[in-house]
Design a protein around this nucleic acid. Structure first.
Length: 976
RNA sequence: GCGGGAGUGGUGUAACGGCAGCCACGCCAGACUUAGGAUCUGGUGCCUUCGGGCGUGGGGGUUCGACUCCCCCCUCCCGCACCA
């Protein structure tokens, strides 16, 4: 298999260019030939230890494994620009390096293909999303192949493949059929919960059974409802993010801070709707604490920590009595959450979220006499005031709330609570600055120490009691700083004089002893809204029994044998969307129109009956939650993943290790979306015994972005960036000055550069070397087409070192290199290894360049290069520029691909010099260089330094107070 | 507002606390050329009276020695943002 991969370029032999110069045309023919050969020979097929992909495993059985993975692409219709491949090339260089360095490397690729953009693109083009998506996948796969990436293409799949989403549905059912046992701190099968409830060894969780009832008293349907309320995947009515412009509900993670959809930038409204939820909050603590066990960027861990938002404090119960109510509601308790229980003496009113479930019960029938007009919003009764405020709050989008400058609004319920420490009556308000769903949805307001409460108290004329002594010069409103407690004592408890920590611990002790509260922890993280009103997603494997009116809303998982639930072919897959701001609209799943699909007759054990299918679909995050597992054997139709394969590729390496993918590279934009969801699913699968790893991604790296300059003319229109010229720091297009801006690459900015153009102009290897040479993988950087030629020149020089441009034959000889060359070579090997291991490919390229420049000087002209130098050079280059390296390796006489050749190892004896140049400083300033033996001791170094004329001149007549000599580094004379 | 990260030549970047600017783009000069967006060679931080002086956002500090460690400030980027 060692036939020459290419012919010389006949059209280039007449114009003075040597026939075998490494031109773009030659590069392209080399590249195409090697890509074909890699495919033909299955060079990058990775053997599994067992099963259908295990052929050839004996060859790698003694190698450590390495699983290197990219965040798989979303096949959009717009195609790749030069920024997209950066991460893919980073993993490719790494996986090629690791393979050569003796690992069994798994480097697969797949496609994340369900979801909104594909559906929107299909609606625009009038083609079925499957058609457009599959065409896009083919196009991206071809682009990746042309870059020369080493994916094991036998393992490629897309999330839209029925053979894949069957298992997405299967995992959904596992989550549906599980509950979180708070005692064990882990998920368990729901059947075990039922058994424990039946046996009386466990009580149902709070709020899962009707008030005042116990498990044995419940009817069969009531028990089903109670069980459903425990599930990790559950249907629930709650205020959710409804986006009329997209026609679907969205998760919190998909809504931006200003209350708009991340996709499409449409307004989002909070509406109470029944939707599917995933109980990710049960995993809040583990998702948080296990971050410490991951090798991830600290900034990304921090984003997840903030999103999970753990905060410790206390729950405090206030008893509430309605003023002027006929019935006695005095026994009602309102529970608040606070991180500052120490300020309880300063609580002067309570605030509930407008949606708080107790609002209706607590609202008084009448205003008392002499009510403050600011507290009523002009309504005749509290009931009217509350109803109007609730309506207003539900209509306002997050955007409106911000636009109003956070001015505090609210109304009084006509009710007061009692401060358990002061006995003082506290008016109870509702206000939208208190959020439902965080903490208990209710707060005690301490205007003296909380700026939001202070603002509200100013607006509503409420009293302020300071309980922390501000500094003497403090003149602001709320004082949130540290200081001794004041105004905080009664006959039972005195906090006065204590600091914050001591006061918290004292008051918490009192709360527990008096039954008014206890210490607790809350999280900002909310449960994951999991249903979408979209066509292009995984159908839920759920049906409802419509023949039983009492239980028609209770979900039933279809049996595993009936998976996958195929997405039906429909004529009209467009979503039902509404005017952006139509907050009265209601979601309508497109699948509900497929009536011959939604109604289905199934035998679920009690004879054939008619059922109605769930018509929501899953969010596109579902498919990306577990794809790392599918790469291990994408054709397995018997089980999620073979446990032996999972242990081999992902399992923990030692007790206490989290396991997971060894290197995962992708953009930071998924910090709290994909990366949080995938961790959650993986932990559920771990709890249920389906995987041995606790985390999906052991090491994560965020690659930087590639940006580019764009230029606008005097009218503000973009002009083609490629046609702009620079003169004396000014930019011109067609002779007219233009303005430069820096940012994204895109067609509309007229600065689009595609990999295809670069491959056409330079070849894929040049493109790869350029992208890798511009900085560490994590670093964002600008694209600069004119600088690509530097990488082209480097490859040309290396080619010229190894190959005779006239004959095309290798120009090496079996001669010994000189010592200097050996030292450069082995230092290069050391540095390139380091660069590859730390993803600083720019360092690897720079050191290879230095070696090349050395060889060009030492063996330029006609003299042959020592084979023992040329071969390592080619191998060092191979991960970066694999095609041309293969070609040179072949011309050096090696019949096999170098993909499996051993990566060079530096010989230590060439890393230490016999003599070294050390700097000689006087008072820290370098004044001379002297040559000393590498192992010279400080005394010898000092002697050598003193022997230098210039140093002697500096020391002449001065007092040397101290001499610092660092072996191998420098000598510093400190003068007095 | 809170939290995080980063500031080095014209540009991308490099430097275990030890010679600041490796490597490359660009630029300048030379060689070979009918020609060059080819190739090769040399130069290229700033100032300079050619001795040297000054330089890693600014100011302090630790150290024989600081791009690197500590403190304060400035600027830019990112994340979160009424989370009690």
């Amino acid at each position: 298999m060692s036939q020459p991969a290419t012919q010389p370029n006949p059209e280039q032999t007449t114009d003075g260019v040597p026939p075998h110069r490494y031109t773009p045309a030659l590069a392209q023919s080399i590249e195409l030939a090697w890509e074909d050969r890699w495919e033909r020979e299955g060079t990058f097929h990775t053997p599994n230890p067992t099963g259908r992909l295990s052929a050839g495993f004996e060859r790698v059985a003694d190698r450590p494994k390495a699983f290197v993975m990219d965040m798989f692409p979303y096949p959009s219709g717009t195609g790749l620009h030069v920024g997209h491949p950066l991460g893919y090339l980073g993993t490719d260089v790494t996986s090629r390096f690791l393979r050569m360095d003796g690992r069994n490397v798994l480097h697969p690729m797949g496609y994340d293909a369900f979801g909104l953009p594909a559906e929107q693109y299909a609606v625009q083009t009038g083609q079925h999303p499957r058609v457009t998506t599959e065409a896009n996948i083919v196009a991206i796969a071809a682009q990746l192949r042309r870059l020369g990436v080493d994916h094991d293409t036998r393992r490629t799949f897309a999330t839209i493949d029925p053979g894949y989403y069957r298992w997405t549905q299967w995992i959904f059912e596992q989550i549906f059929q599980a509950w979180f046992d708070p005692d064990a701190g882990k998920a368990r099968p729901i059947a075990e919960l039922v058994a424990e409830l039946d046996a009386g060894t466990r009580e149902p969780a709070a709020g899962t059974v009707p008030p005042g009832r116990t498990w044995p008293e419940l009817s069969a349907v009531e028990r089903r409802r109670a069980i459903d309320a425990h599930r990790l995947a559950y249907r629930h009515e709650a205020p959710v993010n409804w986006c009329p412009g997209l026609g679907t509900v969205l998760s919190n993670e998909e809504v931006t801070a200003d209350g708009r959809s991340e996709r499409g930038n449409f307004p989002v409204f909070r509406r109470p709707l029944t939707q599917w939820m995933m109980r990710i909050t049960a995993y809040a603590e583990r998702l948080l604490s296990d971050l410490d066990r991951l090798d991830w960027p600290e900034s990304l861990k921090l984003m997840q920590r903030n999103w999970i938002g753990r905060s410790t404090g206390s729950r405090i119960r206030f008893s509430v009595g309605a003023v002027g109510r006929a019935d006695d509601a005095a026994n009602e308790d309102v529970e608040v959450f606070t991180t500052r229980p120490d300020t309880l003496f300063g609580a002067t009113y309570l605030v509930l979220a407008p949606e708080h479930p107790l609002v209706e019960t607590l609202t008084a029938a009448h205003w008392p006499d002499a009510v403050d007009p600011r507290w009523t919003s002009g309504a005749a009764t509290p009931v009217e005031a509350v109803a109007a405020y609730q309506r207003q709050a539900s209509r306002r989008s997050e955007l409106d709330r911000q636009a109003e400058g956070r001015e505090k609004t609210g109304v009084w319920l006509g009710t007061t609570a009692v401060n358990p420490l002061t006995g003082r009556d506290l008016p109870v308000f509702i206000a939208d600055y208190v959020l439902t769903g965080y903490g208990t949805g209710a707060i005690m307001a301490v205007p003296g120490e909380d700026s939001r409460d202070w603002e509200f108290a100013q607006t509503f004329g409420l009293p302020v009691v300071r309980t922390v002594q501000p500094p003497a010069d403090f003149s602001g409103g709320a004082y949130t700083g540290a200081g001794p407690m004041i105004n905080s004592s009664n006959e039972q408890l005195s906090l006065d004089g204590l600091d914050k920590a001591a006061a918290i611990s004292a008051v918490t002790e009192w709360l527990v002893a008096s039954g008014h509260g206890e210490a607790t922890t809350t999280y900002k993280l909310r449960d994951w809204l999991f249903s979408r009103q979209r066509y292009w997603g995984e159908p839920f494997p759920i049906v409802y029994d419509t023949t039983d009116p009492e239980a028609a809303d209770l979900p039933i998982a279809v049996p595993e044998s009936m998976l996958p639930v195929l997405l039906p072919e429909v004529d009209d897959y467009s979503p039902k969307t509404f005017a952006d701001d139509d907050d009265t609209s209601l979601p309508e799943p497109p699948l509900s129109r497929a009536t011959d699909w939604t109604t289905v007759t199934l035998d679920l054990g009690d004879g054939p009956r008619q059922y109605r299918r769930e018509t929501n679909t899953m969010p596109n995050w579902a498919g990306s939650c577990w794809y790392h597992l599918r790469y291990l054997d994408p054709d397995d139709d018997q089980r999620l993943v073979d446990p032996e394969l999972e242990r081999y590729w992902l399992g923990p390496r030692r007790p206490g290790d989290v396991g997971g993918v060894d290197l995962y590279v992708g953009g930071v934009e998924h910090a709290v979306l994909h990366l949080l969801y995938a961790r959650f699913w993986h932990k559920v699968l771990f709890d249920l015994g389906h995987v041995s790893s606790e985390e999906p991604f052991r090491r994560l790296v965020n690659q930087g972005y590639i940006s580019a300059f764009a230029y606008t003319d005097a009218r503000g229109f973009y002009v083609p960036a490629a046609e702009v010229v620079e003169r004396d720091g000014q930019f011109f297009h067609d002779g007219e000055p233009v303005t430069r801006e820096y940012g994204k690459i895109g067609k509309s900015l007229k600065n689009m550069v595609t990999p295809d153009e670069m491959i056409e102009a330079f070849g894929a290897d040049t493109f790869r070397v350029y992208e890798m040479s511009t900085g560490p993988l994590e670093q964002s950087r600008p694209w600069e087409t004119k600088a690509v030629v530097g990488s082209q020149r480097l490859l040309q020089r290396i080619w010229r070192v190894v190959v005779d441009e006239e004959t095309g034959a290798a120009r090496v000889a079996d001669i010994e290199p000189d010592d200097g060359t050996c030292r450069v070579l082995h230092r290069t090997i050391e540095a390139v290894r380091d660069g590859m291991g730390t993803l600083r490919f720019n360092i690897a390229v720079a050191r290879i360049t230095e070696l090349t420049n050395h060889l060009t000087q030492a063996y330029g002209g006609g003299s042959a290069v020592p084979r023992s130098v040329a071969e390592p050079l080619v191998l060092l280059l191979a991960p970066l520029a694999p095609h041309v390296a293969e070609e040179m390796w072949s011309r050096l006489g090696h019949p096999d691909s170098l993909a499996w050749a051993p990566f060079p190892v530096a010989d230590q004896r060439w890393l230490v010099d016999e003599t070294v140049e050390v700097a000689v400083q006087v008072n820290g300033k370098v004044r001379a260089q002297v040559s000393v033996a590498a192992d010279a001791d400080p005394a010898a170094m000092e002697a050598a330094a003193r022997g230098d004329e210039r140093i002697a001149a500096h020391l002449d007549g001065a007092t040397v107070r101290r001499v610092v000599a660092v072996p191998g580094r420098l000598v510093n004379f400190v003068l007095g």
